[in-house]
Design a protein around this nucleic acid. Structure first.
Lengths: 265, 265
DNA sequence: ACCGTTGGTTCATTATACGAACCGAACAGC
DNA sequence: GCTGTTCGGTTCGTATAATGAACCAACGGT
C-alpha cells in the first residue's frame, strides 16, 4: 500500500458518530504505529485536510475539504442537480427519497429529502455509507455493475456484521439477477426493521453505474397497492437526474422502465 | 517534502478556471515527472479524491470531497453559522459581504452574500483564494497573526504578480501596524480598480486568528460618510459570527470595537 | 510519412517512510 | 506521595516504497 493511500485512509475513520479521534486511538483503528499516524496526520494538517481541535490534541477533518467540495460542485454539480429532483419526488410520494453515489467502492448518500414536514418518515443523514447487501440502493447498483467489481465489493469488509444468509454468494447473486431482470430493487425489513424501500440504478454517459435513487417508507405504508405509483414516480425522477447528469441507462433497462410506466398508467 | 504532501499539492492546481488537467500538464505544473504524477493521482483516485473525466483522460477533483465536506460541516458548522450572518449584513449595508477562512496558510472565501438582487455589486465566488497583501481581509488577518506566521506568509509565493511597493516588507509592516492599532482594515482600489472594502479579523476560542469578515463596495459608494454605519454593522456581525463559532476577540480589540459602536451611535 | 505531443509503463537507484523504544505529562487507585 | 497506565509526541537505524529517465503506442496536425 502506498504512503498516500495510508494517509487518506486515516480520514475514513472519521464519521458523524466519531468526529474527533486521538492519536493513540487512530493508530489502533488504522493498524499503524503512533509515529506513522503522527507523521501522516501532520501532512494532512499542513494541507488543511485535517486539524487538531483547538485547545485539545484530538484530530478531526480539516477546513480544506470545504474548498475542494465547492470546486467539485462548481465543476460537476451532481448534488445540485439531484437535490431538487429528490425533493419533488419525496413530496410526490409522501416518503423519504434519496440519491446515493458510488465513490471509491462505497455507496454514499449524496442527497435526500423527506416527503412530509411531520409525521412518521424514514430518517437519513448526508454522507452516510450504505451497505450494499441490505439496501435496495445497494442491490440496484450491484445488479448493473460488471461482475469483477461485484466480486471485489462482496469480498470487501461489507459483511462483517451481516447475517450469514445475506452473505451467502449464491443468495446475493440470485437477488442481483432478479433485480437486473425486472429493472428495480426492493428490500423489506433488511436494513432496518419495518422499513421497506424501492430503488433504481443511475448511469453515466458511458452506461456505467454511478449510484442509485430510492424511496424508503415504513413497511406498513409500503403495501403492494402503493408500490406501483411510487415506482413510476421513482423511475421518472431517476430519468430526470440522469438527464441532468448527462447519463444514459442501458437500452434494455429503458425498455423495462417503459413497461413500468405503462402499468396502471 | 513528504510523498503525501506531494500528492495533496496536486489538488491545489485545480480551480474554477481550471477544473480538469491532463497528465503531462499536471506534471509540468507540479514540477514532478509524469510517472510520479500518474502514481500519485492513482492513489487519490482510489480514495475518490480525484477522478478521470468519463470518456477522457483528464483528471479532476473527485466525489469523495463532498462526503468529507459534509462530515466537516456536521462536526464544525462554520459555514452554516456564518452564512445567515453575512446575508443579513449584506442586505443591511446594501453591499457585498463575505467571510474568509485561514486554512493551510491561505485565505479562502467561506461564505458571501450580495446586498441587492440587482444593480452594481462587487462579485465574488466561493472557495476563491484571496491575496493577503491586496485585500482588507488579508490585512485584517495579518495584523493579528503572530510575527512568525506573518513572515512565513510574506515569504511565500503570494506576491509574484504584486507591485513592488506593496511587497516592500516595511510598507507591509506599516500597514499591518496601523490596522492593528485601529482594529479594522481597509483597501481602496488595490485588489480591483474602483473597489473599496472594510474588514475585521475573526478569532477562535484561544484568541487565534481564524479569518476575516469584510464588506466590499464600489469606491464611488464607499465614501467617508458611508464608512461609519458600515463599520458598525460589520463589527456587530463579526461579533455574532465569533459567538456562533465559540470564538473570542482579544480584549484590546474588543475595546477598540466598543469605541466604533459609540461613534455616531 | 513525419514530427510533436499525448497518456501510460518499466526498472535500477535512492530517498523516504517505518516502528520499536523512548520521553515527560497527566491521571487513577491506593 | 507512590505506582502503574495512558496519553501525545520524538528519536534513529533499518527497510521499504518513491523516484524519474527512458521507453511505448496512439493521436493530430502539416
Amino acid at each position: 500500500m502506498g504512503t498516500t493511500a495510508k494517509a487518506l485512509s486515516l480520514l475514513d475513520h472519521f464519521s458523524r458518530a466519531r468526529p474527533a479521534i486521538g492519536l493513540s486511538e487512530l493508530a489502533r483503528l488504522a493498524g499503524h504505529s503512533k509515529a506513522t499516524c503522527y507523521r501522516l496526520m501532520g501532512e494532512l494538517i499542513d494541507h488543511g485536510l485535517a486539524e487538531q481541535v483547538p485547545g485539545g490534541t484530538d484530530y478531526r477533518i480539516g477546513p480544506a475539504v470545504l474548498r475542494l467540495a465547492s470546486l467539485r460542485e462548481a465543476a460537476v454539480p451532481m448534488r445540485d442537480a439531484a437535490l431538487p429532483v429528490v425533493q419533488r419526488l419525496a413530496v410526490a410520494v409522501g416518503e423519504t427519497a434519496h440519491v446515493s453515489h458510488l465513490v471509491a467502492g462505497r455507496l454514499v448518500t449524496l442527497a435526500f429529502a423527506y416527503g412530509a414536514p411531520s409525521g412518521m418518515q424514514v430518517l437519513m443523514e448526508d454522507a452516510d455509507v450504505l451497505p450494499f447487501h441490505a439496501t435496495s440502493s445497494g442491490q440496484a447498483v450491484l445488479a448493473f455493475l460488471p461482475h469483477a467489481r461485484v466480486d471485489a465489493i462482496l469480498a470487501g469488509p461489507l459483511g462483517a456484521a451481516t447475517p450469514a444468509t445475506l452473505r451467502d454468494p449464491d443468495v446475493v447473486r440470485a437477488r442481483i439477477a432478479a433485480t437486473r431482470a425486472r429493472g428495480w430493487a426492493s428490500t423489506e425489513d433488511t436494513f432496518e426493521s419495518d422499513v421497506s424501500s424501492l430503488a433504481v440504478p443511475l448511469f453515466d454517459a458511458a452506461g456505467q453505474v454511478l449510484g442509485a435513487m430510492a424511496v424508503a417508507a415504513p413497511s406498513t405504508r409500503m403495501k403492494q397497492a402503493a408500490r406501483g405509483p411510487i415506482l413510476r414516480r421513482l423511475v421518472a425522477a431517476a430519468a430526470e437526474v440522469m438527464g441532468a447528469w448527462g447519463g444514459q441507462a442501458p437500452a434494455e433497462l429503458i425498455a423495462l422502465w417503459r413497461g413500468i410506466e405503462r402499468d396502471q398508467g
